[in-house]
Design a protein around this nucleic acid. Sequence first.
DNA 1: TCTGGGGTCCTAGGACCC
DNA 2: TCTGGGGTCCTAGGACCC
Length: 421
Amino acid sequence: MSVYALVDCDHFYVSCQRLFDPALEKRPVVVLSNNDGCVISRSPEAKKLGIPMGAPYFKYRRLCEQNKVVVFSSNYELYGDLSQRVMTSLRQFCPDIEVYSIDEAFLRLDGFSHLDLTDYCTKIAGKIKMWTGIPVSIGIGPSKTLAKAATHLAKKNYQEKVFDLRNPSVQDSVLAQIDVNDVWGIGHRLTQKLTRLGITTAQQLRDSPTNQIRQKFGVMVERTLLELNGIACFSLETDQPKKTIISSRSFGHPVNQLTELEEAISHFAAIACAKLRKQQSKTHSIYVFLQTNLFSLRETPYSNGIMHGFAEPCAHTDAVIQAAKKILKQIFIPGLGYKKAGVMLMNIIPAARRQHDLFIDPCSQDKKNHLMQVIDTINDRMGRDSIFMAAEGVHRSWRMQANLKTASFTTHWHDILTIDI
DNA sequence: TCTGGGGTCCTAGGACCC
DNA sequence: TCTGGGGTCCTAGGACCC
């Protein structure tokens, strides 16, 4: 029988901020998304004030001010670095690990059954806190979905950081308490449909007839049902290369000049290509999109995008920028104020699997590969954007707002925290 | 004034093939 | 009267996740 554990960092971004300012402990704290748009991380104290996850910040600004909530812009450089520390630490306790998101990882503990797993996971949580300063909760179960549910329960119970959901009688008593929309893989649409059938708890979904669920909701929900029954359908996925890579941003203010958009799009293309090369892949196609403010009631919303296929799989920033700018000219309508744009790389393949174009000189490609390697090396060592394409522009006036951002304490020499004694 | 930025998988339907 | 059967590939859209 398989055993999975899900390690989930507690309100991760808030914890990252607290790490560098202990005065924030026990105080309500929230972290905002890019462009200071939405609330994406909340301390338990902030949750208690009734600030929902994903809420637009401008709607809750008053409430935050009245209750002295400490508000931060997000600092992904900091969070990414601390996430890596957590994941590296976890590998010392279990080699089979799937990094599921910036703040979550699945562990496969099949070979650890001789241990008391609650003890072992409590030890893991303690060490992670000691080594990285980040608090984590851990759920244990015979399938990923049950491990997820177990973490959900661990988070509800502030005393215990670990919840073991392997015992069927324990499953019976707790699954009835879990709403069906809190089950991993059941979103609000499926919740609505399931509710109409009278299925409102995890237990009711688990005990529904399998073939009926499959017929009505497809294989994904069927698998979720089996997973709730302790039958593992989702396996551990380790180190998979990305199949699509997106780089996009909302702008700090509406942008209406083509030249400015060209720079932004070029910059997004460069970021995406660097990610592409980092995972040693090439892309077959690129998609460029553009949006005005889709929430605005005054203007009619405009959103458009076009895909372009490359004759030969490609990972060269300059070629991708060229293609992106061509597309941009096709979808750009003068006179509109654009709020967001982005570049997607799709149909990604391993770089090693290459088929040459009969009409492209392979030597010229080698030269370009080398150039890209040099650029990546410089930026890795000296920091992002140390060297970049002229097309990306230098002013970047479209940049997003991040008025409440703290320093990158762990990744920039000049941001290292100093303490006065 | 003000609503993020990534990702994954599945399904249905159309084009096309023999 | 009666209009096959089986397949592949691609795309758009929908659902989900953090």
